[in-house]
Design a protein around this nucleic acid. Sequence first.
DNA 1: CTGCGGCTGTAGCAATCGCTACGTCCGGCC
DNA 2: GGCCGGACGTAGCGATTGCTACAGCCGCAG
Lengths: 178, 178
Amino acid sequence: MGDREEQRRLIVAGASAYVVAEGLTKLSLRPLAARLGTSDRMLLYYFDSKDELVAEVLQALSADLRAVLAASIPARRVPVRTLVEAADALLARPEMRSSAALCLELLGLAARGADPYATAARSLLADWIDWAETRLSGPPRGRRARAVGAVACIEGILVLRAVGLGERLRGALGGLLR
Amino acid sequence: MGDREEQRRLIVAGASAYVVAEGLTKLSLRPLAARLGTSDRMLLYYFDSKDELVAEVLQALSADLRAVLAASIPARRVPVRTLVEAADALLARPEMRSSAALCLELLGLAARGADPYATAARSLLADWIDWAETRLSGPPRGRRARAVGAVACIEGILVLRAVGLGERLRGALGGLLR
DNA sequence: CTGCGGCTGTAGCAATCGCTACGTCCGGCC
DNA sequence: GGCCGGACGTAGCGATTGCTACAGCCGCAG
């Protein structure tokens, strides 16, 4: 046992759950290590730096989120309005609250261009745009632009829900899109 | 000179500029005080805590931003699409970059409900919704809902621009809204 | 048995954080 | 002159940060 790669995977998995629950902004190695039953010393033994660990955690969480997205949104191609409404319904689920909060934390940390956050945020959103493109109906011409717009709307929903203005959203965007 | 309220105003003004330039997430009293030509000791003499200072700074910046918004967006009532496009054009201006980044930082810090950030973020967005409502044309019936949707779109634009995906936005949202 | 190299616990580093105790200076009041 | 209270500088507290130096443990090769 004790393959190094396996240890790294275990740490990333545990750290991901911890980050979703406790937040990214104030993440620090010692409390994280305590929750994982180890020490900061060991985290930095398996990862060269906190940033490297964070980068891997964010990559794992991005994959997780993408899987949730794929599993919760109808597989057929739909118009922009339907896609946005489906994402809205997904974000309204209580168990998605902390993931949504984490997304916002990531965007906030990335806002000044600081890595590893900026890289992770950019690839997360680019992923979403790619994914939206595969789910949109209508003419292929301009589909990418519509995907970008859809993701923008979804991000807006994320923001409003996160600050507690979610109830005002009820159908507001659906009626606006065509 | 020396009126206490006047000193507080001076500090808030200086701190606001500093926060816009340097960011909110890693704001700390000592470097801020150094920039203002004073000491952390004095900041905490005029404000009971860092949180109180931050709350006042965010309030001031919210007012500033609202003034910029009022000055840069056509005063007449317009449809949602036009309003969103105008906000997009405003956010595209280089001198708005750090303000936009600051908004995202604020949202990220507010995401877990921690004050003073959460309160400031909520009131900022509520302000924007109110403002959008005064600028929207069309039937008063449902105008508020359209204002919420418009703000959601604008927040989405903010997010995409902040992570460097702004160029993909070119007209993507305008074509989507009716 | 000896030695060696990977794993890990202990302890500590220097830096930074918000905040505070303490002393001092200084202008106005009696 | 004596005094008092607001303004301010100096210095430091206790906690926390990411990271590291050091030593011991343990299994395996010689």
